[in-house]
Design a protein around this nucleic acid. Structure first.
Length: 420
RNA sequence: GGAGAGGUGACUGAGUGGUCGAAAGUGCACGAUUGGAAAUCGUGUGGGGGGUUAAAAGCUCUCCCGAGGGUUCGAAUCCCUCCCUCUCCGCCA
């Protein structure tokens, strides 16, 4: 979230941010609550000062075995008054906090208005001299994707990977993780459920609770992305500046209710309630976070390069950018069946939005002061969608699929998936 | 699931109703000492929110001893609820 102080003093700046996002917020109410809150705080503080002073006198009297009855008289009245005011103060505190928790991050000035802006393309969009099939058709034909079985086991919006389909997912996960560790990311395998505080820390709560699977008997949520558990590794910590930047990579399944997507046609495994993803997470100083974002983006891109899949990078416009992000890119892979680009990674800089929520700071060596770190993350990459892209881009006329060379060592040397 | 123990500052750890935001030690930072270092000595060393300020620094008030309530003129200390950690038993991959 944003700092109250900053928001109070930068309402006009924020209005532009909101307009870019095409959202609205009741900033007037916020300012009113905040003003009243401060008046109330001041009053409470003054009364407490009085109370503390008298308490000390009482204590002194008792020590000297003097009668303190006169002093104690009237204190009850004061205590009651304070209690009443504190209740009001708490209400106002809550209003301000709730507002901030539901208020999006400020945008970096470079975030475009209107539509996403293409930054670059890589690779050659494949030409097919035969009618292309979509991944669902190919997957079912090859017997490696089974949507019917998944629907029976669980329900719609799930997929069962079989045989080489399952092995392909597993190979991709290992392939990606191995690449990232070489770049200095520390691999972590976090819990796949998070508590309320953690889920609040990365801003999935309170605003997006409908997107999450919540456990009934425990106060836990299934992770919608590894971002949640991994960023919270350092919740309520003060890191040493020497330690920064910190890089993590993690594989987790991701669970999403996709509550808003029911009306849309769900295409095969492009949008499912459970998918695998390898995530990249960084903690940096404010000074380096934008350089680190570029590097993170490159690390994610490199996965597609090694796989030989054509993609483009777009700078996200205000409307498309996530609630907690200041700035970000999407990587989109080419999807032959739709002749469209498909989002396969989002790389974002959250600046201090998450770190303030989760209280993740570092001690600045020069001044000895604490500052909020900047948090960044990006998919590196969404594994299921990678499978989709591989099936479609590397299909042949017979419906067989060539496996990218780079993946071979992780797939026991398999070069092609054929109908078995 | 049952029984017990415990949660205090970056860390270890004292503190059971009044001047305790909290002893002591460790660590860390700065300074002295040294050719340099170690050792030693000295000084300093948490966070949130207000006020003062154009702003910062500084000064000042207030809150924070797992979280939330309560008792009291006054709570780290007493009471209640919840959460977490550890040990033993049970169950179990």
């Amino acid at each position: 979230m944003l700092s109250v102080k900053w928001l109070r003093e930068n309402v006009e700046v924020m209005k532009e941010s909101l307009a870019k996002r095409k959202t609205e917020a009741d900033l007037d109410s916020f300012l009113r609550w905040d003003g009243e809150r401060r008046r109330c705080t001041r009053e409470v503080d003054e009364l407490k000062y009085l109370q503390n002073k008298k308490s000390k006198q009482i204590s002194q009297f008792k020590k000297e075995s003097k009668d303190a009855v006169d002093l104690i008289n009237g204190m009850q009245h004061l205590a009651a008054k304070i209690k009443k005011l504190e209740k009001r103060k708490k209400e106002l505190d809550n209003k301000v906090t709730d507002f901030l928790l539901n208020f999006p991050n400020r945008l970096h000035p470079d975030v475009p208005w209107g539509e996403n802006v293409e930054v670059r393309r890589w690779g050659k969009i494949p030409d097919f001299n035969f009618p292309v099939k979509d991944h669902q058709e190919i997957g079912e034909h090859l017997g490696i994707l089974d949507f019917k079985a998944a629907a029976k086991i669980t329900g719609s919006g799930f997929v069962l990977c079989k045989g080489l389909g399952a092995r392909l997912e597993r190979a991709l996960i290992n392939f990606m993780l191995d690449m990232h560790i070489k770049k200095g990311y520390e691999e972590v395998l976090p819990p796949f459920m998070t508590n309320t505080s953690s889920t609040m820390g990365t801003a999935q709560l309170p605003k997006f609770k409908d997107e999450l699977y919540k456990l009934d008997k425990d106060d836990y949520y299934l992770v919608p992305t590894a971002e949640v558990p991994v960023t919270n590794i350092h919740r309520e910590e003060i890191l040493k500046e020497d330690k920064l930047p910190v890089y993590y990579t993690a594989y987790t399944p991701c669970f999403r209710r996709e509550a808003g997507a029911y009306g849309k046609k769900i295409q095969g495994m492009i949008r499912v309630h459970q998918f695998n993803k390898v995530e990249l997470v960084k903690f940096t100083t404010p000074e380096t976070s934008y350089d680190e974002l570029e590097k993170l983006l490159q690390d994610a891109e490199e996965v597609l390069q090694k796989l030989g899949l054509a993609y483009r990078v777009v700078k996200l416009c205000g409307e498309e950018l996530g609630f907690a992000a200041s700035f970000g890119y999407d990587i989109e892979v080419w999807l032959p069946s739709q002749k469209k680009w498909l989002e396969i990674s989002t790389c974002s800089n959250f600046e201090s939005y998450q770190s303030r929520r989760a209280s993740i700071k570092y001690r600045e060596k020069l001044t000895g002061k604490t500052r909020y770190v900047h948090t960044l993350n990006g998919s590196g990459l969404a594994v299921g969608r990678c499978v989709v892209a591989i099936l479609e881009n590397f299909q042949d006329e017979k419906g067989n699929v060539r496996i990218p060379e780079a993946l071979a060592p992780h797939l026991g040397g398999v070069e092609i998936i054929e109908r078995g």
